[in-house]
């Protein structure tokens, strides 16, 4: 795909004048330098966080992986990421369970179901969801969504309480819990999953679709036999991109969740925490050592998102055209 001029033309341009050669080499090195700078920044993020984490971990009196509490500034510093890791993963999973089917549905709607003329405006509308800043999502979440979740939470407690997960131990408490956070995160990652899946569905070979229809398939059978199999890798990597965003979301979670250091599978009970939310809330009152401890948790978050995003990119790399970076 990269456009390369014929070697002969390039050679001629190079040889023409010495000042043009100088200009070429300056420009080449400048642009290569910025590329290298990006790599250096990524390496520096990992390096600096690892260095500060090393300082923090050497003085941790608890087990960093299994301790529940977060007290790095106590005389005997004790802190661990068990609750944070659990909360991060659970809220992101809830978000994925809700967002992926809905996003695939929306993508299908825009690419195959919506009347041609309104499909494009609808696509814009969904993209606009991505434009809303996360702080506004957070504010809306806590002042609008949380009060509206009361009824739904009571419902789930009543009818699904037997699953243990949806059991509410204190009835009627404000639903600032991991489940509400999951719903909010689902709304926030919908646009990226939709945008990438939509692009994939658009690239399904027209011939496959028409062949399916010509064999008498209904529209759904055509989608099931032609569109979805073709789009599966795209859907997977789109979901992982969304997952990466959900894992790293900070301020919306910090506003909506009423955090504590209890690890509980009851997702309808307030409490728990996530990596990013913990950093945002503990940061201001943290002493220098407390900051180092927060950086250690930040490093874990960085590594997790790096792995998730890297995997998504490797899956998608086979088809370069739908990167989704512009979503």
């Amino acid at each position: 795909m990269t456009s390369s001029p014929p070697a002969a033309a390039r050679g001629r341009a190079r040889r023409s004048r010495s000042d043009s050669r100088l200009g070429d080499s300056i420009f080449f090195n400048l642009s290569r330098g910025s590329g290298i700078l990006l790599l250096v920044i990524m390496a520096a993020i990992a390096g600096f966080l690892a260095y500060r984490s090393g300082i923090a971990l050497s003085k941790d009196e608890g087990n960093f992986l299994t301790t529940f509490e977060w007290n790095p500034d106590a005389p005997k510093p004790v802190f661990g990421i068990a609750v944070l890791a659990f909360g991060t993963i659970v809220s992101a999973l809830i978000a994925m369970v809700i967002a992926v089917p809905v996003a695939v549905g929306i993508a299908l709607f825009i690419s195959h179901y919506a009347p041609r003329r309104i499909a494009q405006p609808f696509a814009y509308l969904v993209d606009l969801l991505a434009a809303v800043p996360s702080i506004v999502y957070g504010l809306w979440g806590v002042l609008f969504l949380v009060p509206h979740m009361d009824g739904l939470t009571a419902w789930m407690d009543q009818y699904l309480g037997w699953t243990y997960v949806f059991d509410q131990t204190q009835a009627g408490v404000t639903p600032r819990n991991l489940f509400t956070v999951g719903i909010l995160l689902a709304i926030m990652v919908l646009p990226i999953i939709t945008a990438v899946s939509r692009e994939v569905f658009r690239q399904v070979p027209r011939m496959h679709e028409e062949a399916a229809l010509a064999l008498g398939a209904t529209r759904w059978e055509m989608i099931r036999t032609a569109v979805l199999p073709f789009g599966r890798p795209g859907i997977i990597s789109a979901s992982m991109l969304g997952l990466g965003r959900a894992l790293g979301e900070t301020i919306a979670v910090a506003i909506v969740l009423s955090a504590n250091s209890v690890l509980s599978l009851h997702v309808l009970d307030p409490g728990g925490g996530t990596f990013a939310q913990n950093i945002a809330l503990k940061f201001n009152e943290a002493q220098p050592f407390g900051r180092d401890a927060l950086m250690a948790s930040g490093l874990v978050l960085f590594v997790i998102t790096l792995l998730v995003n890297g995997a998504a990119r490797l899956i998608i790399a086979r088809r370069k055209e739908y990167s989704g970076a512009n979503a």
Binding site: T2, L38, I41, F48, L301, F302, N309, R313, A317
Partner: peptide, 30 residues
């Protein structure tokens, strides 16, 4: 686009993609 070929360009492409997913709070910590 104009110069990139070879291993460096591949690495840059991959890490640019990965970098879009860096959580904002991690950038702040850095």
């Amino acid at each position: 686009v104009e110069y990139g070929r070879g291993r460096l360009a591949k690495w840059v492409t991959f890490f640019v993609d990965v970098m879009t997913g860096v959580p904002s709070i991690v950038a702040g910590l850095f």
